Computed example of a mutant assay.
Amino acid sequence: MKRHSFKDGEVIFRENDPSDAAYLIMEGKVEIIHGRRSEANTTVAVLGRGEYFGEMGVIDDKPRSATARAKGETACMSVSRDEFMDMLLNRPEESIELLKVLFERLRKANDRLMLMEKSGGTA
């Protein structure tokens, strides 16, 4: 693991970048931004201390699906693909906690999709 410091507004990674590490927020906040469907970016999440981000691409080896940007002074630990996979395979308690976070994110995304469908919007 390697510690990184980011200033307010600094981009940690951009949508479509290669996924080389996951990040754990130690201090501050990170805004997750999605901009694929329009010129305007959409904030999909604001994450805080103790939360992971960037883990999807580390697991499925696909490019970043969103941009991550620091909100305020932020410190993160980067976790390489090998370190992350080692955690998943050899530390079941931590793996289960991560799965809970991922499932909660999926539930929220499903809820947003359902709201859009009910309001006549498109996904």
Rank of each mutant, 00 (worst) to 15 (best):
K29W: 01
V30N: 06
S38I: 00
E55S: 09
A70N: 06
F84K: 08
A68C: 02
D82N: 05
V11C: 14
R37M: 13
E73Y: 05
S5Q: 15
R69W: 01
A75N: 14
D20H: 12
Y52S: 04
S119T: 00
E55P: 06
E94H: 10
A123E: 07
S19N: 11
P18T: 05
E10D: 05
R69L: 04
D8L: 07
V30E: 06
K62F: 10
R14T: 02
L98I: 12
C76V: 10
H34S: 12
A21D: 11
M87N: 08
E39K: 04
G50M: 07
K2N: 11
F53T: 03
M114P: 00
R105M: 00
D8G: 06
E15P: 12
A21Q: 07
L98P: 04
P92S: 08
E97L: 04
Y23N: 00
Y23L: 03
F13R: 11
A22Q: 08
K2Q: 10
E27C: 05
G72Q: 11
A45F: 04
E83F: 15
T122C: 04
E55F: 08
I32T: 02
L99W: 03
H34M: 10
S80C: 03
V11K: 15
Y23W: 08
V30R: 01
L98K: 09
E94I: 02
L24F: 13
I32C: 05
V44W: 02
A45V: 01
G35L: 13
A109Q: 05
I32M: 07
S38R: 08
